[in-house]
């Protein structure tokens, strides 16, 4: 399925189902339905970490690292908004080191809005949103220097990370910052688990924003993605059963979910 340039009928069906699921959940949540969201200790720790900074009088650092503009950044911005609100309420210093100049504009806007939401718009300091570098290890060295100079009390690392993940996390560890990390890069999760106090794994990053804000649109998205995931789990189970049965019934190969999803428009015969 990788490198698909044009949609296949199977993928179109999946996309339509995704759209319908989102529409249905938005309607339900709009009608006042309350979804249950399970507790995520790492997300609960966000508030605790900011509170700790207030007690110690140390700044909070939040980075989206190598995340470019896209769904992952949007998920991170939801968490950043929640963190920035707390920081504004506690009158702390917030530092958001930046890797991507394009994402920086969105990040700045998000933090400014968060300050306004709690009535502290004038306290927002744009200098806190610092562009470091678009070069991976130059960014990492800038981040290390920043964490050490500012003696951060809490460090949040949300987004896409690569080999610099451990460098960033170790810098926070060295100054004794409470660290919460969330990554969609499975290769880096092990490093975060070793170094950070709390680690959100994969899709928990997307759930964190809804969990913190309880905002209807975000909760509806979370519910819709869970239902879509259930569909995929169902397809996996069907695939496993068919793959097992095809030892006896070779004709079943045609009905394997991966074949159905990748079959082109030419395969449709009426």
């Amino acid at each position: 399925m990788s490198g698909l340039e044009h949609i296949t009928p199977g993928v179109l069906v999946i996309l339509l189902i995704a759209g319908l699921l989102l529409y249905r959940e938005l309607k339900r949540v709009g009608g006042g339905y309350q979804h249950f969201i399970r507790r995520i200790p790492g997300v609960d720790a966000v508030e605790g970490a900011v509170g700790r900074c207030a007690e110690l009088g140390r700044p909070v650092v939040f980075t989206t690292a190598l995340t470019e503009i896209g769904p992952v950044l949007y998920a991170c911005l939801g968490v950043l908004h929640a963190v920035a609100r707390k920081v504004a309420q506690y009158k702390l210093k917030l530092i958001v080191p930046q890797y991507s100049p394009e994402a920086m504009a969105l990040v700045e806007d998000t933090v400014r809005e968060a300050y306004r939401d709690v009535g502290r718009g004038s306290s927002f300091d744009p200098d806190g949103i610092k562009f470091l570098s678009s070069e991976q290890f130059a960014f990492a060295s800038g981040y290390m220097g920043l964490i050490h100079r500012e003696n951060a009390g809490a460090a949040f690392m949300f987004g896409a990370f690569a080999a610099e993940a451990l460098v960033l996390a170790e810098a926070g560890q060295q100054v004794g910052a409470q660290q919460v990390a969330a990554s969609v890069s499975p290769e880096q999760i092990a490093f975060f688990i070793c170094t950070c106090d709390y680690t959100l794994i994969g899709e928990e990053l997307f759930g964190a924003s809804a969990y913190l804000s309880r905002e209807p649109v975000q909760v509806a998205t979370l519910a819709a993605q869970d239902r879509l995931k259930l569909l995929f789990v169902g397809l996996i189970v069907v695939g496993v059963v068919l793959a097992t049965l095809q030892a006896w019934y070779p004709g079943l190969t045609t009905w394997m979910p991966d074949k159905l999803l990748s079959a082109g428009w030419g395969a449709l015969t009426w």
Binding site: A18, P71, P186, I189, G202, T221, K229, F232
Partner: peptide, 17 residues
């Protein structure tokens, strides 16, 4: 499992965006 979860979540967020 991590990639599937993140991929589905990303797809839903992309539609919303």
């Amino acid at each position: 499992a991590i990639r599937l979860g993140a991929g589905v979540a990303g797809l839903m967020l992309a539609i919303r965006m």
